[in-house]
Structure formats: C-alpha cells, structure tokens
Nucleic acid binder design. Structure first.
Lengths: 318, 318
DNA sequence: TTTTATCGTTGCGCGTTATGCAACGGACGA
DNA sequence: TCGTCCGTTGCATAACGCGCAACGATAAAA
C-alpha cells in the first residue's frame, strides 16, 4: 500500500514548519524532539521526498513540505467538520428516524407525541410508514424501520417490546346505535346481531377478534370488508353498523360526537395491548433512542384505562 | 487530544459497511477479522458513538457510520490528489525554482539553458532575480534563492560551488577602437590610456579589476560609472571607450559585430571564474536539482576557453 | 424442533512501532 | 575559539496492531 499520510505525522510536520524548529514543535506538542524528527523522517520516507530543509538553526519546508502542510490543514478542517456533525447526531440536533406503525395510530401520534418531539428537535427528520401488523413486524426485523408501533404483535424472539399499553378493542358505533343504549358493556353475542365492518388483511385488531369469536363459538360475519380505518369509521358514522378498533384510533370522531366507543366484555379483547417494538439487540442511534423514550412516556400517559372502566370516552387534554 | 479518525480504521469501517460484513472486509483486506472488529470498536470508542449495528448475519452502518464513511471517501480522494501533486513535483511536472544571478548572464541564460529547460518541463515556474555579487551570495545563503550564478564569489563555508567555469574578463571595445588593432592580448597598462566605463556597486567583475590593477600598481580611472551592463555596452558601441566584462555577457553585440572582446593579458583576469552555487548542505527539491544539473552541463558546454586562446569570438551554435 | 454453519467478539502471545533519555556531530554567535 | 542550540541517532521500554483460537449468538437447514 502507498503512503498513509498519517494524521499524527502531518501534525508534527505542520508545527515544525510553523515554528521553523523541530525542537520547538516537540516542546509545543509535549513530546521529545526525537519523536518529531523521526516521524517527519518516516513521512519523508513514505513519500520519497524531502519535506524539510535542515539548517544549522531550525528547519524550513520544501515545496513538497508546504504541499503536505496545506493538505494537513484541509484535512484537519474536514475532520473537525465531521466531528461536529457527529456531535450534532449525538445531541439530537440532526438525525433520521424511521417509524412504522398502523393506520390507527396516525391521529394520536401526529397530534401528540410526534408533534412535540419534532418541535423540540427541529433538525430531525422522520420516515413514517403505515402498514399492517405483519408489515410492521417485518420492517422492524429487517431493519427497514427502527421503531414499530403495533397492535397485538406475534411473539418473536427477534423483537423487543419496550412498552406495552393496554388498549382494549372497542365496538365503535354511532351514538344512535342500539348498542349505545345497552347500559352495560356489550358481549360478543350482543354484537353478532348487528351489521359489522371488518378489516381485511394482516391487522392485529382483526386477528384478536377472530380469536375472541372463536373462543365463544360466535361467528361475526361482516357486511363490509376493507383495509382502511377511514372506511370503517365512515361506515359507523353513517350508522350502518359496528366496527372494531381501539378507542384511540377513533379519537377525532369521538370528540366530535360522531361515534362512541364501547369496551367489549371479553377478557382477550379487554386486555389487548399495543406494543412499541424494536429489533432485539439493536443498539439504537441517539435520535431514535430519544424518540423511543419520548413515545413510551407520552403514550403511556395517554392510556385511558389505568383502572378498568366500562365506557371509553377519552378526555382530550386541550 | 480528541479523536484522530485514523485512516486505517476508517478504511476498515468503509469496507465493512460496503460489504455488510466484518469478516468479508477482513478477507478483502487480507487481515484477520478480529483486527477489523477491534479497530472499528476503537473508532467507536474514539467518537463515543456506535457506527455499526451488529446483526446475527453481518453488520450495517448507523447514520454516524455513514457519516464517517463519507468522510473517509472525501479524505481518500484528497489524499490521492495530494499524492499526485507530490508525484508531479518529483517528476518535475510542477515546481518552482528561484534563481538569482548577475545581469551579465541574462542573455546567455534566457537564450540557451533556461529556454531549453522551460520547454522541456512546461509545468515549472521560475523566479529570476537580478542583482550584484553580494546580493546573489546573500540570497543563496539566506535561502531566498536556491541557485545562484555569480562571478568571482567570495569564499564562504556556507556556499557550495557545483561548477566553476573559466570566463576571463575581457576588454570590450568597438571594432574600430585602437586596441582592436593591437595584434596581441592587451595588458593592463595598454588599457589605462583609453577612456573606461566602470561598474559601480558589488560586482565580481569590478572587484577583480581592482585586484588586478592593484597588483600592477595601475590606476584605471573611469569616465563613466554605472550599475548597468547595458550602459556599459552602449558606451562601447558608441566607441566612447573600453568596458570590462566576460565575453559571454556581450554575446549579442559580438555576433552583431558591434563590439569585440579582447582577453586581457593578466593571470588573475584570465583565470576568472563564474560559479554556480547553492547553500552548503542544502538538499534541493527535484525541480531545482534538475535545473542545476542542466545548467552545469549546458553552461560548461558554453565555456569558450577550453584551452587558453587569445581572442574571444564565440561561435553561436545556430 | 434440533442441527449446523456463519457471524462478530474476546483472551492471549508475538512482532512491530512509537517514545523518552542520553549522547553525538554540526552550525552559529560571542 | 568556546559555548550554545540545533537535528539526529542508539538503546531500552511501553504501547499498539495483529493473527490464532475459542466463545456466544444468530440464522438457515434438516
């Protein structure tokens, strides 16, 4: 391999040229003069060129020496520039975070925690990918996203859950829907009598509903199948029937009085959890770590069911 | 001291990121995997940041890692650029030479050796300083010029003579001047009878003339004093009298037939020498060394008095 | 599920390299 | 001519990089 142009050696050369003296440079750099002399000699051997002219009193740079000194200067500034950028990365002044989550989290995420975080660290950029449960899990495992927020994720050794938040699946209905006047938490059998809209595809909500229904040997046959939460909510707003999702996924419509959320009286559905996950063993960059901790804190605060109540009507903190 | 961002370590990091594997990088670079692993770990310790995410299979760069890889790329190209410039310096494709000499050498220098050298190495630049003997010696000793061409330089341990060229001091006279018809080499006593133009200041020619005149107790009182060779030559061309200088300094006027040069019959003057000097012990850059050798070779070839002859009439090689 | 292969990491010993101390030769100034 | 300061060089020591081998972990194959 050709010469390395070692940074330390260039440093010695630079000071020797600047002070016009090897001993001076050595004193300045708190090393022995022999060190400076030898390292510069090695540098000269590397490039097969004399870099210093030795006089009885001090030294002076040759043209090649000046060239290397100038190179050292440029390299030094580039190095400090890079170190500064590195420092910015560490101090969350810059950075990029890739987040993958389900459609149901969008409103709450953007309205709350994400908004705060972005305002606090304006230099950070986000990628926010929306997909179903399987897609989220896969994206986290494959490393395409660093943080995943997912409902009812499958057990996988490669995943690490940083926070689990109880988010019961609710029956989302129109305020005028018969279930709204039931006076108690509806059971699965109560739901089966009304039209249902169902999520198609790999959604945790849907999987949970299937498990719960199977446990009570109840068949919930949907009249509408969709892969969009928005379609579900419009279905309910039109009072066409019931949809199932965690209450927070319909926050906006609830505060507007368009829909209400009823916790379903079933142990599996009541204890359903949203998980904040990363890949197991992954050491996260500072920015990602910051967002992760922020999410855990803020989203835990949003949890509406600290103690089990019957009706889910979230009070917005505004 | 903060981190050095060692070139070798960055090299390891770069390949590890590129191949997505530490072992792969190690194999590519013909080192053991432990080396790559350790050096990258040290790099991470230096910058206090994780640069790679380790998976069960291979590695991937973090944002900070990518930043350093990019830095390594930039630094590498800058390094190669500098190395290339260094190579050019060595191969005489680039470089700068500082030459200091007397006015008398200008015509011969520019017309011959310098012209050839500049054409052969078009990338080189020259500084050509014209001054008197003392100035030349001082410039060489102080390092302001690398090469000096000087007539009759004082003995000084700090000077090193690379070539000495016999250049007798001649009496430069008009073709119609009485001395031109003398039929033999004029003696100092012959010259004293005619008007003389003299160099003022620190010129080797002048010092030699003083030494020679003193040795024969002859006083040569000038009618014109000047510090310009051009003035001397115009003085002669107008047939106003005699001037003293080496024949080569009046080459142009001699070939034009305006003046002729008569070697003066005096041992000191006949054995006068022009010296090519540098500072003692100075290790010259390649370009300077090249010009030095070129000058020695070419100027020695110009020496018109390989064996002592009487009349100086240089035959131009054109 | 168990097995196997591959990955990154780490302890250890060896060779290289850098460093400090001291002494040397040379150059400059008094 | 002597004294001082310079850069350089032997020598012994400490630090570092490196290869070898083994380990734990992960991912693909059986």
């Amino acid at each position: 391999m050709p010469s390395d142009l070692d940074h330390e050696r260039l440093h010695y050369l630079r000071h020797a040229v600047k002070l016009g003296s090897i001993r001076g440079a050595a004193e300045r750099l708190n090393v022995n003069a022999s060190t400076v002399s030898r390292q510069i000699a090695l540098l000269e051997k590397d490039v097969a060129t004399t870099l210093l002219e030795r006089f009885g009193r001090g030294v002076r740079a040759t043209e090649a020496g000046l060239l290397l000194v100038e190179y050292a200067r440029i390299q030094d500034s580039a190095r400090e520039d890079t170190l500064a950028k590195l420092g910015e990365l560490k101090s969350l002044k810059r950075g990029h975070i890739e987040l993958v989550t389900g459609e149901g989290y969008i409103d709450d995420l953007l309205g709350g925690p994400l908004q705060e975080f972005c305002q606090r660290f304006p230099g950070l950029t986000l990628s926010l990918e929306i997909t179903g449960t399987d897609g989220i899990v896969q994206a986290v495992i494959e490393g395409e996203a660093q943080i995943g927020i997912v409902y009812f994720p499958p057990a996988d050794r490669r995943l690490h859950t940083h926070a689990r938040i109880r988010q019961p699946i609710c029956a989302i209905v129109h305020p005028k829907h018969p279930l709204a006047k039931l006076g108690r938490a509806p059971k699965l059998s109560d739901l089966a009598r009304y039209p249902i809209a169902e999520l198609r595809g790999s959604f945790g909500t849907q999987k949970l509903m299937e498990v719960a229904a199977a446990s009570e040997s109840i068949s919930l046959t949907p009249v509408v199948r969709t892969n969009s939460f928005l379609v579900l909510k419009r279905f309910v707003c039109a009072n066409l029937g019931i949809a199932f999702m965690p209450a927070f996924a319909a926050t906006r419509e609830m505060t507007d009085g368009e829909v209400i959320a009823l916790v379903i009286d079933h142990p599996v559905l009541r204890n359903a959890e949203a998980h904040i996950i990363t890949r197991h063993g992954r050491r996260l960059p500072p920015a990602t770590l910051g967002l992760l901790q922020h999410l855990i804190k803020r989203m835990k605060a949003f949890e509406p069911f600290a103690s089990g109540r019957t009706k889910a009507r979230r009070a917005r903190s505004a």
